[in-house]
Amino acid sequence: MVKKSLQRLYLFLIFVFLYLPIIVLIVLSFNNSRTRVVWGGFTFDWYISCFQDEKIMSAFLTTIQITFLSALISTAIGTLAAFGISAMKKRGQTICLGATNIPLLNADIVTGISMMLLFVRFMDLGFMTVLAAHITFSIPYVILNVLPKLKAVNRSTYEAALDLGATPLYAFYRVTWPEIRPGVFSGFMMAITMSLDDFSITYFTKGPGVNTLSTMLYTELRKGIKPELYALSTILFFIVLIVLLLGNIRPQRKAQQL
């Protein structure tokens, strides 16, 4: 009994450490007071002025553009790459997966600086360089999500479709695609979250005037803390949360159906 309650307490403490900062942030975003220490009553004011702030809104727009474009493009490239890798022999697979995993483990700041050095050599830093950077670091996540699905797909089901008269394209669309779709979808979701909360790589590859939410937050926070930023951070947190939930619930429900 004692042991059990100790276990519960331990778990509770872990969750407190994990989520207390975020809870504080969320609470403060509704606080009708400019200081952090006093509770001035409940308000939506910060959310309203957050949406009226031009800087915030332009950063928000940029973020959405970059997030969705980079997620779409990296999902397409990553899925094709997964097909290529799965068709390779064992040795080639190991080498290729290793090569795609290194950027995954590499410190963001190193990736960011090296990309910046590369980009300034050929073009001006700006929207396109941020987009290119986001596509690049998202691809490995897509590959990691699609590859296991692709390996689980029985190659002979594809052959069976051909055998029954399907053209290779039709066989892929009707047989292979439905089986890897959950993997592609969760890869896409992963790419969205990665792109959404990246700071360091964006910071180094963005040009003047281009800001995503995270870099904008950083520059604004240096000037002083505005309560609108609490509201913005809260929104950002919930967007990521929803995306993650979507990505996790969908494959699970699929699994239960079977």
Binding site: N154, S156, T157, A160, D163, P168, R174, P178, L258
Partner: peptide
């Protein structure tokens, strides 16, 4: 393969898991 007038029964059955039995046969 898709233009040959013969059909194969595969070792691992190779049914399409996301389709019903009728859909499999109708494929």
């Amino acid at each position: 393969a898709n233009e040959r007038k013969l059909n194969t029964v595969f070792q691992k059955y190779s049914l399409f898991p996301h389709m019903s039995i009728a859909e499999n046969i109708a494929f």
